[in-house]
Simulated scan of single mutants.
Amino acid sequence: MSYTGPDFDPPRPRRSPLRRTLTVALAALMPGALLGWGVYAAVGGPGGGGGEERAAPVPSSSAPAAGGDDAKEPAGGASSPATASAPAVSGPLKGKVVVVDPGHNPGNFRYPDEINRTVDVGTHHKECDTTGTSTDAGYTEAAFTLDVAHRLRDLLTRQGATVKLTQDGDRPYGPCVDERARIGNEARADAAVSIHADGSAAGNRGFHVILPGAVHAGAADTRAIAGPSRDLGERIAGRFVRVTGSAPADYVGGGTGLVTRTDLGGLNLSKVPKVFIECGNMRDAQDAALLTSGAWRQKAAQGISEGIVGFLRG
């Protein structure tokens, strides 16, 4: 998700390496999900191999610009064909519904008029969607988010959850941000997660989870979901850093990996617990090396999955 689009704020100034080290260390001492961030020091920083890879990567229909490990199949056989939803199997999450929202759409760039039209997000009007960002080598955010969504869907389905994707490359563009929220609402999701990768300045690194602030205006009313969404976001952040070894972003969130916003339609219009996760910065070479790795994307999906499972099981 790029900071140059309609749903994004400009990046904050970079912190010095020393300050970044201190903020990550302090974050490790914070309660709740931030306890998991103490593992960051043990794995040696971003990309340090933190967290066991629980399953081999799931094949992706959109091959990355780099990395050759995407042809592996997950344990237990090949991934099922891409569908908009996956039925539950027996497991600890049986009866739970999770909506996974792969940010953007590979075809958005072909439909500028459609994605630039404005929609009501409660507090104001915003563009339907954006094209997203990409690495310098051309690996798109839309390809990344769909690949991670497939991996996440498979992991959650094995736990017994019913998983619905807001889009699966099965429509020419979109859906718009208001429809993305509506899909989760109509599914009566127990949890919803929107997957993104950032397009900040080169040199800015790390992940962050975006939480909905308390909004009550027009069609937007997040007062009931703000608390549960924070719980969901903290759990995802804690597991994400443990499994991937990535650090919280050094350019937003004050080193906590958590950012609260009230301008995103996908959060403002949600009636179910929902967060966004920016898995890394595509415009930074070191983060891009992770995001284009199938093995790392599997770890990202695993971390997100563990956070969701922890939230749903209480």
Rank of each mutant, 00 (worst) to 15 (best):
M1E: 03
G5I: 05
F8C: 10
D9P: 01
R19E: 13
L22W: 14
T23G: 00
L29M: 15
L29N: 08
M30T: 00
P31C: 10
L35I: 08
W37S: 11
W37Y: 14
G38H: 01
P46D: 14
G47F: 11
G48Y: 04
G50K: 05
G50D: 09
G51I: 02
G51W: 02
E53M: 14
E53Y: 03
P57Q: 09
P57V: 07
S61Y: 07
S62P: 02
P64Q: 10
P64L: 04
G68A: 15
G68Q: 10
D69A: 14
K72C: 07
K72E: 13
A75P: 03
A75I: 11
G77K: 06
G77Q: 08
S79F: 06
V89E: 14
V89P: 02
K94S: 15
D101G: 06
P112L: 12
P112A: 08
N116Y: 05
T123H: 05
H125F: 08
T131L: 02
T133Q: 03
D136W: 06
G138H: 14
T145K: 03
L146N: 08
R151S: 14
L156H: 04
L156M: 06
R158Y: 01
T162I: 01
V163N: 07
V163Q: 07
R171F: 06
P172W: 08
P172M: 10
E179V: 15
R180S: 15
I183A: 09
N185W: 06
E186G: 06
A189K: 03
S200I: 04
A201R: 09
A201N: 08
G203C: 11
R205H: 12
I210F: 05
G213K: 04
V215N: 06
H216T: 13
A217N: 13
I225P: 00
A226Y: 03
E234I: 01
A237H: 02
A237L: 13
A237F: 00
G238C: 10
V243M: 02
D250E: 08
Y251F: 15
T262F: 00
P273D: 12
K274D: 05
I277N: 00
E278C: 07
N281R: 02
D284A: 01
Q286M: 02
A289H: 07
T292H: 05
R297E: 12
A301M: 09
Q302G: 04
Q302T: 15
S305K: 01
V309N: 00
